[in-house]
Design a protein around this nucleic acid. Structure first.
Lengths: 180, 180
DNA sequence: TATTGTTATACTCTATAACTATA
DNA sequence: TATAGTTATAGAGTATAACAATA
């Protein structure tokens, strides 16, 4: 049973890491921890329905949500994985009978990935579970807080996007404190 | 280049998933996406220093942060992994020379995992990078917003903790819409 | 009996590099 | 030349079950 108090940095943080912002370090730690625990719980509930991995479910949800067969690289883009990883993931989905490849009618380099009836069944059973888990997880927030949270996260995502596009500035080195 | 607009659910959500809250589904999607992109960027920066996996770094940071050698299961608890996975992770860390096992002086069932000088060097180099990334990622928020975000995340974590402790309520089934 | 850690086993995810086919 | 996908290769992470040693 992990405690549900906020994760905090120690009092020496500011002098130990010059230039770093303590509350930002704390936000990082807390957002990662919260997301991890949330995903673990969602995965636990999905697993009760069928043994499908998170990535496999995500891929199925993308295809089903699109309402049409999609080229492999489109799914790879949405899942943030390489095309080679996507090939492997599609192999798994096909072996399990949840998706199928078929040739693209116009462009012979491409394939189209379609979801099967079995795959659709999995998505139909799992989506309500996922949405119910989300509803329960965020039921302690007001509608206003949820809207605000989405807005804040989106701003952060824009900033991260810029960071990914540029070389990072070398941070100031750690100043190690004395230790018992 | 993924867009940095907020992830939204479609207009038919409410009727398609009775009982589910749209903004909660949106928070889930956005928090997972933001965290994933953030972790990818942090990992990219860490990888520029040394080829250490996220889990390996986390384990090293836990030991270093404790300021003393720790039993294996304590580290496993903090990383939310099984003890068997921890054994595997420790094998990797030991092989790379970043950590070492030694017998517990009082309890012969236990081992103590200590960080080596090389491991300490890795942590000392990576922590400033991680904190700098966090500082940059959340620089678009005010200090008040960061405090608020930590508070909100902590409340969510408490709720998730309760969810993990009880059997989930079966959600209402999906009501599939017509599709073109 | 309960706790700690390891072994055995197996599977998934992921990436990079090299390659083929097609546009 | 650029794009789409596969193959080959490799490594990491993770879990469950069975087990040994110790408390």
């Amino acid at each position: 049973m992990s405690s549900t108090e906020a994760i905090r940095v120690g009092p020496g943080f500011a002098s130990e890491f010059p230039g770093a912002v303590a509350s930002s370090a704390e936000v990082l730690a807390n957002v990662v921890r919260t997301t991890t625990e949330l995903l673990n719980e969602v995965q636990r509930r999905r697993a009760a329905i069928a043994p499908v991995s998170a990535s496999a479910f995500q891929a199925l949800a993308v295809i089903e949500g699109a309402g049409e067969a999609l080229p492999s690289h489109v799914i790879a883009d949405r899942l943030l994985v390489s095309t080679a990883s996507m090939t492997s993931l599609l192999d798994t989905l096909e072996r399990r009978g949840f998706a199928a490849r078929r040739p693209h009618p116009n462009d012979r380099r491409k394939i189209l990935v379609e979801i099967t009836d079995d795959g659709r069944l999995v998505v139909d059973q799992m989506l309500p579970v996922v949405h119910a888990a989300a509803t329960e997880a965020f039921s302690g927030l007001t509608e206003t807080e949820r809207k605000l949270l989405i807005d804040v996260l989106t701003r952060v995502r824009g900033q991260v996007s810029e960071m990914a596009a540029s070389e990072p500035v070398p941070p100031k080195p750690r100043r190690k404190p004395k230790r018992a």
